[in-house]
Lab assay of single mutants.
Amino acid sequence: GLEHMADEEKLPPGWEKRMERSSGRVYYFNHITNASQWERPSG
């Protein structure tokens, strides 16, 4: 619901949600550090 939507907005600075086109899996990418990970970043 709306709570989940708001929660997605609160990623740490630099992080954004991305989708891997080949598999459709969602991952997280940090455009500041060029880091990427499957787990939702905390902090």
Rank of each mutant, 00 (worst) to 15 (best):
L11D: 09
S23R: 03
K10L: 11
E8N: 10
Y28N: 00
K17R: 13
H4P: 12
P12W: 02
W15N: 00
R40A: 07
K10V: 12
S22K: 14
G14R: 01
R18L: 08
K17G: 02
Y28A: 00
N34T: 06
T33L: 06
S23W: 03
P12N: 01
Q37L: 04
V26F: 14
E8H: 09
G1M: 11
K10I: 11
G43V: 12
R25Y: 04
N34Y: 08
E20P: 02
Y28I: 00
S42Q: 11
G14Q: 04
Y27F: 07
G43Q: 11
P41L: 01
L2R: 10
E39T: 09
E20M: 11
W38E: 05
Q37N: 02
E3V: 13
S36L: 11
H4S: 11
R25M: 05
H4E: 13
N34V: 03
L11F: 03
E9D: 12
R21P: 15
G43D: 11
H31P: 07
S23K: 04
Y27H: 02
E20N: 07
E3Q: 13
F29T: 02
N34M: 12
S23P: 01
E9P: 09
E16F: 05
S23Q: 04
G24S: 05
Y28T: 00
R18P: 00
E8K: 08
W15L: 00
R40M: 07
V26R: 04
I32V: 09
E16Q: 07
E9W: 07
A6Y: 12
R21H: 15
Y27Q: 02
E3T: 11
V26M: 09
E3L: 07
E8V: 09
R25D: 03
K10P: 15
G14V: 02
M19G: 02
L2W: 15
H31V: 15
E39P: 04
Y27G: 00
K17I: 10
R21D: 14
P13Y: 14
P12G: 03
E3C: 15
A35R: 14
E8Y: 05
W38Y: 13
P41H: 00
G14A: 05
M5N: 12
D7I: 10
L2P: 12
Y28H: 00
P41W: 01
S22H: 14
Y28F: 06
M19L: 14
F29K: 03
G24P: 01
A35E: 13
L2V: 11
M5H: 11
V26H: 07
E20D: 15
W15P: 01
R40S: 07
E9S: 08
R25I: 05
H31I: 15
P13S: 07
E3N: 12
F29N: 01
R40Y: 08
G43P: 11
M19I: 15
F29H: 07
K10Y: 11
E39I: 06
V26P: 06
H4G: 12
R18H: 06
Y27N: 00
A35Q: 15
N30D: 03
L11R: 01
A6K: 10
G24T: 03
W38Q: 04
A6C: 15
R21F: 15
F29A: 01
R18K: 07
T33P: 00
P12A: 04
E3K: 09
L2A: 12
F29Y: 14
K17Y: 05
T33V: 04
S23A: 03
M5R: 09
E3F: 02
R18S: 02
N34F: 09
G1E: 11
V26Y: 14
D7T: 10
P13M: 09
R21A: 15
M5G: 10
M19D: 03
D7P: 10
S22P: 09
K10H: 11
G24K: 06
L2K: 10
Q37T: 06
T33K: 04
S42E: 10
E3W: 03
Y27R: 01
G24Y: 03
G14P: 09
P41I: 02
S42W: 09
R18V: 07
M5T: 11
W15K: 00
I32F: 11
S23E: 04
E39G: 06
N30I: 01
A6F: 12
N30T: 01
N30Y: 04
L11N: 02
L11K: 06
Q37V: 05
G43H: 12
I32E: 08
A35N: 08
S42G: 10
E20A: 09
E8Q: 09
S36G: 05
N30S: 05
N34S: 09
E8C: 15
P12E: 03
Y27D: 00
